[in-house]
């Protein structure tokens, strides 16, 4: 028996959310009295360092066809790694790719999958996980009754302190068929040089209160000073002021950063659904009646164009 953790990489490096998943998976392995194996697909570096986060072993599939996230091939490789390691639990950090892959692995292995998991499992009576439901508005305590289990964890739910431990790295060659590569990725458009919104520890978002896309400079500058990602409300993305991948909310990206700063966003219930897992929420709005203040930890009623520059200046001195 073991716990397998799927580690997603960008440009050959583990994503921060995947390092959190390794730490979480290692803890689950400890609770089950077994070992934790990390699985990395495609060309990657510094794999032994996954031991810093608790992995005992790293399985590496050094197949350059897996440098891009082909859903079928990834699912097949992960399912074979589960079998090889005799893994009873698979842990992944939620992402566009991991979600799609986890679902297929669940189908292939007939494994119960709990998504948006927010805490360690409770093993006192079966295998029960707490997961976020109704887009962050509530939680369910869900028992996974199948022999094999899959946990897709939300970001920022488990804190792991890196150690100096290293993991042994073992090459692994799963059997992949041509049919696994039947889907062709023809092009990828990705914002470069900016911090990924779902991965960010701090998010600065703007809403219609900013009056137009030409006014986004203060959002971007505050984000830059704080090392934050930028987001926006749905109306802003619908008006094409900002790209759809920045839309935070019920039908957009769900974030759970340490700090979420909302500028000129009134806080419709659909927007709150995308941010209510944030540890600390700051709301800046000219309307004292904006519903967002009820969900905020800190609030400033005022004109964003006067308030935000003051905050930027203070942050620069930090």
């Amino acid at each position: 028996m073991s716990v397998l953790i799927f580690v997603e990489t960008t440009e050959g490096k583990a994503k921060p959310s995947s390092l959190e998943a390794v730490g979480y998976g290692a803890k689950v392995a400890e609770m089950l009295g077994t070992s934790a194996t990390a699985l990395v697909l495609g060309d990657a570096q510094e794999l032994e360092k996954l031991g810093n986060y608790g992995a005992n072993k790293v399985l590496h599939v050094a197949d350059s066809r897996l440098n891009t996230g082909i859903i079928q091939a990834y699912s097949n490789a992960i399912a074979q790694a589960m079998e090889k390691e005799n893994a009873s639990v698979l842990v992944l950090a939620k992402s566009s790719l991991a979600d799609a892959v986890a679902a297929r692995v669940a189908g292939r292995l007939k494994a119960g999958l709990a998504s948006n998991v927010v805490d360690l499992p409770n093993l006192s009576n079966g295998f029960v996980v707490k997961r976020s439901i109704y887009t962050g508005k509530a939680f369910a305590n869900t028992a996974i009754t199948s022999e094999k289990k899959i946990l897709a964890i939300k970001k920022n739910i488990y804190s792991v302190t890196p150690t100096s431990n290293t993991a042994s790295v073992e090459a692994f060659t799963p059997t992949l068929n041509d049919s696994d590569f039947a889907a062709k990725i023809t092009n990828t458009e990705k914002a470069t040089g900016t911090i990924s919104l779902p991965e960010a520890n701090i998010v600065v978002s703007g809403g219609r209160g900013l009056k137009g896309p030409e006014n986004w400079g203060i959002v971007e500058e505050l984000a830059k000073v704080l090392g934050a990602a930028t987001g926006c409300s749905k109306p802003v993305s619908d008006l094409h002021w900002r790209p759809h991948h920045e839309h935070v909310g019920q039908t957009g990206v769900k974030v759970s950063p340490n700090l979420y700063i909302a500028i000129g966003i009134s806080g419709a219930i659909q927007h709150l659904a995308g941010v209510n897992s944030s540890k600390c929420i700051v709301v800046i709005n000219s309307d004292p009646e904006a519903p967002f203040f009820q969900a905020a930890d800190y609030g400033i009623v005022g004109d964003a164009f006067q308030v935000v520059p003051k905050i930027i200046e203070a942050a620069k001195k930090m």
Binding site: T142, A143, S146, I300, K310, A314
Partner: peptide, 24 residues
């Protein structure tokens, strides 16, 4: 393969601390 045993709401949020705009 799964069974939800119980449901709960997030703990209520504490009051929002207001900062005057001129002390932003």
């Amino acid at each position: 393969l799964t069974k939800s045993l119980s449901f709960e709401l997030p703990p209520p949020k504490g009051a929002c601390k207001m900062i005057p705009a001129d002390e932003a």
